[in-house]
Design a protein around this nucleic acid. Structure first.
Lengths: 252, 252
DNA sequence: GCAAAAGTGTTCATCGTACACCCATGG
DNA sequence: CCATGGGTGTACGATGAACACTTTTGC
């Protein structure tokens, strides 16, 4: 206790729950989380969230982005990132009193190229649903649970959905964000009501048409491309209540 | 780095934002926060949130309640307490890398007796509004800001309001929780609409009449006493939207 | 009786869901 | 021209704000 300094009493780390949407058979499986397979003594060979110890002069935000850079090779400088909560129960780590500040990151699954870093065997995108919780190292299953709840809630009262889409996207793509994360049956919600949920954005020119059609033509009329130009920190004036919707058949 | 142990790299502390409602001239001043005046070398004589360093075998929850016990003499064992967020910018404390896990606690201002603990000059309830932010030690003004937003938001979608009331209370008292924290003009919202905001609770027998009248008779008809018997973790099915209400004059 | 506050019922605008219909593209 | 999905407008039921009215207390 010299020179007014306090003695460190814990190890502080950050872990990051990275969410994205990727193509999959089932709509529910489109929502995926980034997991690494550990190659270290503690919890070796177990799946875990990417994380690092926080450096002496580093903010949590910087540490979280560094974790993604060094462990998974991802450049997360511009990604949406927010603090989720701090997990510090004694005994959550066998190597001492480790306190981990968990974060959530969202990214569009465009140009993301994975590269395993130090202490990592492999990296994988894993569907959020049906993930065997016990298989995760430490209390990372708890972190993931909290992260899932946080993002599902935020989808309803904020504009974070756009963080999971590329710059230009169709309204169908936007809808698929909601259906993958909240409820697959939203896929069958009719267009009119879906658009109305974003009417305030259209009115405020925050969600603007690019004046182009989507190039990828599967079947049917291609959708218009839109661009979200507003601040993501904004929130809805009224929360979405799509839980209670009873969807009819696929019209026609 | 012996026996697989990690070396501590930071000091972990907890700070607690304790909110209550207390009698005051202006409705807005009824919402108050518990602050202590420090009597220590670092930030001496400054107002701060009560807090302690986390012990090696202690959860954050336990540490937070201990902070209230040892610093302010309050028995917070049964109080509503939740984690708010973690503040750990390098340089937020001059005594080293101190990471503080901030919490929010709510308590009914009944039988709470303050008693200054070690390192504390005095303790005071201070109105949340018009609090000169610069006067707080460390980054506690930031914590308070986040806490204010958190509680205001939670008031709209959860039942935390009841945590600020004694076991038995009138609907006027309940309304005053909302008017003190959200908007003073809610005081003039008519009874009918206010009751409707709790109709689901009445229907589910979660908010039950005690069958008694409030004893304190100022003027007018005394209100019935109610008791909240539900789990506080529940949330509203629809969020309150009392921001947009335009209140008329005080009828008649 | 009168003022003040509590409690009840009803009207009317607004919001959200459901539904009907038209447009654009591929085969 | 038909199947498929995108896009637009409208009708109807539910929600909630506004208002009128009754009840209970103190003075």
């Amino acid at each position: 206790m010299e020179s007014n300094q306090l003695t460190p009493n814990a190890v502080v780390a950050v872990d990051v729950v990275v969410f994205t949407l990727r193509p999959a058979q089932d709509i529910e499986d489109r929502w995926q989380v980034l997991l690494v397979r550990r190659d270290e003594p503690a919890f070796g060979n177990k799946l875990a969230l990417p994380g690092v110890l926080v450096r002496g002069d580093e903010t949590f935000d910087k540490a979280a982005r560094r974790a993604l850079q060094t462990k998974t090779g991802l450049d997360a400088r511009d990604w949406y990132l927010e603090q989720l909560g701090t997990f510090g129960d004694p005994g959550r780590d066998t190597r001492g009193r480790v306190v981990s500040v968990a974060h959530v990151a969202l990214v569009a699954s465009d140009d993301v190229e994975l590269a395993a870093g130090s202490g990592i065997q492999s990296i994988d995108w894993v569907p959020v649903r049906g993930l065997p919780a016990e298989t995760l190292a430490f209390d990372h299953a708890d972190m993931l649970r909290v992260a899932i709840n946080r993002i599902q809630a935020k989808l309803r009262y904020s504009w974070v959905a756009f963080q999971l889409l590329p710059d230009e996207f169709t309204l169908s793509a936007l809808r698929s964000v909601y259906s993958a994360i909240l409820d697959p049956s939203l896929e069958r919600l009719n267009t009119s009501n879906f658009r109305k949920a974003f009417s305030t954005l259209f009115a405020s020119k925050t969600l603007v048409s690019v004046g182009q059609r989507a190039s990828v033509g599967k079947v049917g009329r291609p959708g218009e491309l839109y661009r979200f130009v507003g601040p993501i920190t904004g929130t809805r004036t009224r929360e979405l209540r799509w839980d209670s919707v009873r969807f009819g058949a696929v019209g026609a």
